[in-house]
Design a protein around this nucleic acid. Sequence first.
DNA 1: AGTAAAGTGTCTCAACTGAGACAGGGAACG
DNA 2: CGTTCCCTGTCTCAGTTGAGACACTTTACT
Lengths: 194, 194
Amino acid sequence: MTRPVGNLRVRRTQKLLREALIELIEEQSFDALTIGQITERAMISRAAFYRTYQDKYDLVEQIFAEAMNALHEAIGELGLEHPPAIWMTFFEHIASYKRLYRALLGRKGSPWFVQKMQMALIELLAERGRLPHGKDGAIHPIHTDTFITDITSAMIVKAITWWLEQGEGYSAQEIARRTSRLMAVFFQEALTWQ
Amino acid sequence: MTRPVGNLRVRRTQKLLREALIELIEEQSFDALTIGQITERAMISRAAFYRTYQDKYDLVEQIFAEAMNALHEAIGELGLEHPPAIWMTFFEHIASYKRLYRALLGRKGSPWFVQKMQMALIELLAERGRLPHGKDGAIHPIHTDTFITDITSAMIVKAITWWLEQGEGYSAQEIARRTSRLMAVFFQEALTWQ
DNA sequence: AGTAAAGTGTCTCAACTGAGACAGGGAACG
DNA sequence: CGTTCCCTGTCTCAGTTGAGACACTTTACT
C-alpha cells in the first residue's frame, strides 16, 4: 500500500527529487531550501513537484516513510528473541540510507526532522515493547513513561549522528553492540525508578 | 549550433543516459552493454533512446562531440604563443571529464573509442599545426606524416589513461609539463628524419 | 543444424511532464 | 510605509515520454 506502483516517470521524478534534496542539504541547509532550488537541481518542473508533494516537508516525510517501511520489513523478519540482532539490523538500515540520514540529522539538517526521527523511534520501541535482553513479549511499563522514551530516542539519534559524522571507522556491528549495551544499562537503572 | 537548446526533458534524458552509460561501463564493459541495460539504469524507455540516438556508439559520439567542443572553446581562448599552456588546458579538460574518459579509455572501455580519441587528437594537433615551442604559426610538415601523428596521438592517449588510472596523485600541471617535454623531445628527433 | 532466449529497431496511444502565466504572501530596504 | 524581489501554490495546453506489441537479427546452447 502506498507503494510506488507508479510507472517509470513517477518513480524517476521521486528519485531525482530525493537526490537533489540530499545534495542541496549537504551544500546549504534544509531550512534554507526552496522548492525552486530542489526542482531545478532535480531537473523537473515546479509544477511536477506540487503534483505529488505539498511542500519540502512532505517530500521528506514520504522519503522517510519509505525508509521506515524498509526498516520494519527488515526487523520483522527477525525473531523477537534477540534484541542485539535487532540493533544490528537497525544500524545496517542506517548505513544503507547513510547520505539521507547524515544530511537530515546533521548540522545542515533540521530540528524538525530530528524530532520526527525520535518520534518514530519511540513508536518502534513501543511496538517491540520490551527491554533489551527481555525474556517475554509483554509490553513493559517502561515504554509508557515519556520521560524515559524521550531520553532513549534522543540517545539513539545521537548515536546515529555520531556514527555518521565522526565514527566513520566503526562498523554497524560495533555501534550496534555499544548502543545495545548502553540501552541495557539505562533501562536497568530506569527500572529501579518504577 | 547543435546546442542543447532542447527543453528540460530532453536535456534530462541526455544527462541520465550519460550517467548510466558511465556507471555501466565501470561495472561491466562498453562492448557488453545493451541498449536495454542503459535505458533501464537511466530510468527512461528504450523508445526514448532510439528517438535521439542510433545506437550506443552514437550516444558516445554525441557526448564526445560535446566534450571536444568544450575543449576547443577552452583552447580557443588561449593565445597561440604558448604551447605548454595549451597542454595545461588540455589536461584540465580531461580532469573535468574524468569519469567519462576513464571509463571509455580504460580496461572496461573500447578500442573503438581509443581510436576515435586518437583521431580527434590528430585533428587537434593539425589545427594547431605546429611544434611545441614553435615560433611561427605555419603548419609544419611533421603534422602530415601519419607515422608521426599516429604515434603522437597514441602517446597522448597513453598519458591520459596512465594519469586517470595510476597517476591519481599528480596534478594536471605536472602531467601537462611531462607530456609537453616528451612531445618536444619526440618532435625534435622526428625533425632529423625529414 | 536447430532452437530458445535475448537484443534490436520501430510504431502508436495514453500518460506524465514542462513552460509560462497568475495571484498572493513575506522579507529586505529605502 | 511602500516598493521591489523572490517564493509559493495553482492552472492550462503543448510536448516529450512510457508501455507494450511487433518483426527481425543475433547469440548461446545442444
